[in-house]
Structure formats: C-alpha cells, structure tokens
C-alpha cells in the first residue's frame, strides 16, 4: 500500500529529473529538453499534490484530523508545492522556457531536504491546542505563497546577475532570456510574494488575537517576517519611486530572500511560540 511519505519521496526524484532536464536544455540549447522538463515538472507537481492530499486523509484515519501544514516536514513539502505551482503558472503566462533553470532546483532542494534530512521527522503527530484553528490553513497557505514568490524572484535575480551584459558573449550564460525580461519577472514575483506575505502576516495576527488575545507580540518568527516584509517594502519603493532596476534590484531581492530563509529555518534556533514550523 502506497503511503504519503513514499509518494513524496518519489516526487523528490521526479523534481530532480525535471531540474536536470531544464539544466540540460540550457547547456545544450535544446528547446525540446525544456518542454520535456515542464512535462516532468507537471508530473512531479501532480504527485506532490496527491502526496499532500493522502497525508491529509491519513491524519484523519489516525484520528488526529488536521491539515498537513503543522511541522517542518509538511511545511517543506508544501513549500515545494507552492514554488512548483507558481513556476508552472509563470512559464505558461510569460512563455519563457529557460527560466526554469534557476527555479526548478529550488523546488527539488526543499522537498529533498524534507525527505532526506535525518533531522526532519515525517511522522504525523497530533496538533497542540493552540494550532487548532481554521486560521492555521489560511495563514500557512498565504505565507507559503509569499515565500514561493520570493523564492522564484530569488532564482530570477541570480539569473540576472549570471547573465553577461556584453552582447558579443555567446557562451552558456548568454542563452538566458533578455535582461529586461528577467528584471520584469523578478519584480512581478516580488509583488506577488509581497501581497501574500502581507496577507500571511495579517492572518497570523488575526489568529494570534483570537487565540491569545494579542495581534502582535514580537515573537521572533513574527519579528523576522516583519523584517522580511520591510526589506521587500524597501525594494518596492526603490523600484517604483527611485527607479532602481536590474542588478541593484537583484541584490536587494537576494537580501530579502536571505531574510525569508532565516524566518523559515533560522528562527527555530531562537525561542518562541512558532518553533513548530
């Protein structure tokens, strides 16, 4: 009988294969490999979705009955899912294929870390009373959509910095989409991420108010998500008001993503309420 952990382990390998295809498409300049990469990515996304759904059902069968967003393993799996969903959407909307080179590895890395790291338990555990709230689902989904936007923006920023500005360079790196397109995509992804991080912080605040009676208590995870928010708010002003573009924005976006990573992983090293995810 297939269980969710097995299905998600398989998903890891499917995502790995998709990344390899994208990297191949870029290295060998074969459009067909990128097309294949997208097909494999969609397949991985389907099994990722099934894995999350199955895990949800399993938690009901075990009598705990909660959405699969409650620990590090589940959140990483969901992170892969959101980045994959967003990336698939972007590729279809903007019709640029090679851009998957820097986004698909992130999808693979997150789920690989969840499946393979010995520090991360994939057992389904019951929820502590504070987490039993409908706000949990809304809060986690919106936060992760935000993180996904920033992750894809990060991939694009790296791509921007890697691409040579010199038009005569015909090496590997010049095969990436035009700088203007990458720049625009980075900015779009940051806006998407910012909107959802904003909603994520807000749902978290409303939830905290209904569970503990304060909408803001400067707990380290809260504070770090605010720090992330402030960095991206700065990016938006630099872009919209001061006209920053290209490399400058790429660096700010990378800085912002470092803050996202710290909010996600680093904060668990600090004490606080949020230490579950």
């Amino acid at each position: 009988m297939m269980n969710s952990s097995m299905l998600l382990s398989i998903t890891t390998f499917v995502y790995a294969f998709a990344s390899v295809l994208y990297i191949g498409a870029w290295t060998f300049k074969k459009e067909i490999l990128a097309k294949l990469g997208m097909a494999v990515l969609v397949l991985g996304f389907a099994s990722n979705t099934a894995g999350i759904g199955l895990r949800w059902i399993e938690s009901y069968q075990m009598g705990y009955g909660h959405a699969p967003f409650s620990n590090m393993y589940e959140s990483l799996v969901f992170f892969s899912w959101t980045v994959a969903a967003l990336y698939i959407f972007v590729e279809f909307k903007y019709r640029e294929r090679i851009i998957g080179v820097f986004a698909t590895p992130l999808i693979f890395l997150a789920i690989a870390y969840a499946s393979l790291s010995p520090n991360i338990a994939d057992k389904i555990t019951p929820l502590i009373p504070a987490l039993k709230s409908n706000w949990l689902i809304g809060h986690v989904i919106t936060c992760f959509l935000g993180y996904a936007g920033f992750a894809v923006a990060f991939g694009f920023s790296i791509m921007y910095l890697v691409k040579p500005e010199n038009k005569d360079d015909h090496g590997l790196r010049s095969r990436l989409p035009s700088l203007a397109v990458i720049d625009e995509l980075t900015y779009q992804m940051v806006m998407f991420g910012f909107l959802f991080l904003t909603i994520g912080i807000i749902t978290g605040a409303v939830w905290a108010n209904s569970a503990w009676g304060t909408y803001w208590s400067w707990d380290p995870k809260e504070t770090w998500s605010l720090i992330t928010w402030l960095i991206y708010a700065t990016l938006l002003h630099l872009r919209m008001v001061r006209g920053w573009h290209g490399k400058q924005i790429a660096w700010v976006s990378i800085l912002g993503f470092m803050a996202v990573l710290f909010t996600y992983f680093g904060v668990n090293l600090l004490p606080g309420l949020h230490s579950y995810a």
Binding site: L226, I227, L230, A233
Partner: peptide, 10 residues
C-alpha cells in the same frame, strides 16, 4: 528617508 527608516527598522 523612507528607505532609510524602513531599513533601520528592519
């Protein structure tokens, strides 16, 4: 000034 304040807060 906005940028300076936002980053200082962060």
């Amino acid at each position: 000034l906005t940028v300076v304040i936002l980053l200082s807060l962060a």
